[in-house]
């Protein structure tokens, strides 16, 4: 009897978990999934949708699997998000580490390889094992165990092969690549070192972060301009279509619409979704990197709020936030918060 119950139970579990693309296969300690603004405790078997984030605490760890072909290891104190955007060769999966340390071991999982991203860089990969360290100051360190990785930031690319690494500061081009041989990578001490220098000179750090946010905003503005142009063109052609409808009848109108308006309709949707990609990336950056610095500064100066350095920081921070409000917020809504 007990055996039957056990079999039914296993069958139910198997049935309820089949068909999931990205799932958590191992969780150690308390791990959260952030989905549509809500936080849920993560459990093995949970599936992730694009846009969801896996958030580990100081003593927790998570492993994800995609279609059983790739493994993603999210180390403590990390935020990892899967996103998707329209690239030059169609839809591209972007594996984004906002903060913390995440290792990847890829099989042939997406047809086209995913893009690895942090707030300060994007990397194309080919058959690769690599670790991404995203510091709380917005910096990135990439260490390649195998395969080829092309790291790109601010329009400059660096190719990395086995046992090579590179550091990218927020809003800057990639630094000099270096050999990982004989070098023990330790995210905690790297991150602590980066954060110490950030806090020693928060104004410069904030300036770099502002540049990084500007990078996202530039993409949003370019795409938004394109979208606005397309929509204007569409509205203009729609007026002509209306005229043809009135003067020449439904069939002529339909033919005109299919030929002239519909091709524009096919372009606006994907363009808008790309704007959303950059808006959501900006929101992550604002929430976890900029917000983290703000909280730290607030606590440090709470007994000395009139301190000149602090006031200067607040004024700069306000400027950065104003850009965010102006350029990013129009593409966000309550579901994102």
């Amino acid at each position: 009897m007990k055996k039957i119950f056990l079999i039914i139970f296993i069958a139910i579990i198997a049935i309820t978990t089949y068909g999931q693309n990205t799932s958590l296969v191992y969780v150690d300690g308390w791990v959260d999934i952030r989905s549509a603004g809500e936080l849920f405790e993560a459990f093995p078997g949970d599936s992730l949708r694009a846009g969801d984030s896996v958030i580990t605490g100081s003593d927790s760890y998570a492993e994800l699997e995609q279609k059983n072909l790739s493994s993603i290891f999210v180390e403590p104190d990390s935020i990892f998000t899967i996103r998707e955007m329209e690239g030059s060769s169609g839809k591209e999966t972007v594996l984004s580490t906002t903060v913390g340390s995440v290792s990847f071991k890829f099989g042939k999982l997406f047809g086209i390889e995913p893009i690895i991203a942090t707030p300060s860089m994007v990397a194309g990969i080919r058959g690769t094992e690599l670790t991404v360290y995203a510091g709380e100051d917005g910096s990135t360190l990439i260490a390649v165990d195998s395969g080829l990785v092309t790291v790109e930031s601010q329009g400059v690319s660096v190719d990395l092969v086995k046992d090579e690494g590179v550091e990218v500061l927020p809003g800057e081009v990639p630094g000099e690549k270096f050999s990982l041989l004989g070098r023990e990578m330790d995210f905690a001490s790297w991150n602590a070192e980066k954060y110490e220098s950030l806090i020693a000179d928060p104004e410069t750090g904030l300036k770099h972060m502002g540049n990084q946010l500007d990078g996202f905003i530039t993409e949003i503005v370019i795409l938004d301009n394109l979208l606005t142009e397309l929509k204007m063109e569409k509205e203009y052609i729609k007026k002509e279509w209306q005229k043809i409808l009135d003067e020449q009848g439904k069939e002529q109108g339909k033919a005109f619409f299919n030929k002239n308006v519909h091709p524009l309709d096919l372009k606006t949707g994907p363009l808008f979704l790309n704007i959303r990609y950059y808006s959501l990336s900006s929101l992550s950056f604002r929430r976890f990197i900029l917000g983290g610095l703000y909280l730290d500064m607030k606590a440090r100066y709470i007994m000395d709020v009139n301190n000149n350095e602090y006031q200067k920081f607040l004024s700069m921070y306000e400027d950065v936030m104003n850009s965010f409000e102006e350029s990013v917020v129009p593409f966000l809504d309550a579901n994102d918060i």
Partner: peptide, 8 residues
């Protein structure tokens, strides 16, 4: 992939 992006 666009789930969150189109959830607006």
């Amino acid at each position: 992939g666009n789930y969150n992006a189109m959830n607006i």
